[in-house]
Design a protein around this nucleic acid. Sequence first.
DNA 1: CAAGAGGTATACAGATCAGTATACCTGCGA
DNA 2: TCGCAGGTATACTGATCTGTATACCTCTTG
Lengths: 192, 192
Amino acid sequence: MDSGSDAPPLTPAARRIVDAAEELFYEHGITAVGVDLIAEHSGVTKRTLYNRFGSKENVVAAYLAERDRRWRSAVRAAVDASGSAEEAVTAPFEALRTWTSTYTRGCAFLNALAELPDPRHPGHHVAAEQKRWLRGLFEKLATAAGCPEPATLATRLFVLHEGAVATEPLSLGTVTAAADLARELVRAAVRG
Amino acid sequence: MDSGSDAPPLTPAARRIVDAAEELFYEHGITAVGVDLIAEHSGVTKRTLYNRFGSKENVVAAYLAERDRRWRSAVRAAVDASGSAEEAVTAPFEALRTWTSTYTRGCAFLNALAELPDPRHPGHHVAAEQKRWLRGLFEKLATAAGCPEPATLATRLFVLHEGAVATEPLSLGTVTAAADLARELVRAAVRG
DNA sequence: CAAGAGGTATACAGATCAGTATACCTGCGA
DNA sequence: TCGCAGGTATACTGATCTGTATACCTCTTG
């Protein structure tokens, strides 16, 4: 279930394929990007792509898993860098601020869920799991901060986080607004 | 800018096309559904489809505009049915609860923005406009309820609303959680 | 009754889709 | 030195994509 390092190491060509897929899928959408374009963009033969991944579905899953891996490590770094248990609860919002300064096309996982409604699609599972992990992380952090009813707070913070990342492309200042409100909620829950 | 009734009335065939498009686009995604399928599903010739709409892009825009129209009228009804100005501010969350009991594939507009990154796509504009309208509605309602700093409250409610609708397909209870928190925020802002 | 709007039926063009077939090259480790 | 894993190059299949061409039908309305 964890998006850890137990994944098989990628061959050089596979690495380039995943990198190209990340750019193209995120920027233009998954269904809109064909395997020919990915192969061309990564300087790799389509034959190699299919030798490594077997299908487009699996390339999509690899793209999402790779992004999830990078995103989780960014979130963990933000949590570790926070000065207190209370501060740690809203650390994902700090990570989000940095993250959205680079990626302005919203959340790759929400976007993927929008495009891949079929739960049997391997990419669907990766995206859904990323969301459940964040929801669970908020609960762990809330518990560690000594918050009563950590489940309630966690769901609220999760909703705020997802609302922020989903509406970020609209440039309405939602990321900052969500972070501010999140801090207020945590302060009230811990100290109140 | 308003999604009002100034739109030209649809011919019977066009009506069926938009209805079929709504079902298919929402359920399976926009890029994944072809015009042939829409024509077949609506019992209409592809020729007619192109005579009425000219392109798939325009069918997409019509689908989103129609959905926007229906959704706005549901929200307005909820606002009108609320007992007080304070209650009216969170009325969209009540409408959302009813709405998501029918539609469990998330927000058609967020999904559309995920699939249509190009702002020149006519559907992109319709979807983005729907979001701005809601954000503006929250601000109007907050102002009417006598809330100081209505802009801040409006953005917060907007983020909550979008987070709820975006994560609703995950079945994590986010719609209820967002509605509860929204009521608390409004109460605190108006009475506090 | 004539004309046009709305629609049907069918066939097609040209591009792109995911995925496969065949044949060859290169470096490395047993 | 032999074999194989990883990769290249190119051509192909059959389906599906958006959009068009041609021809005909059936109301309604002036």
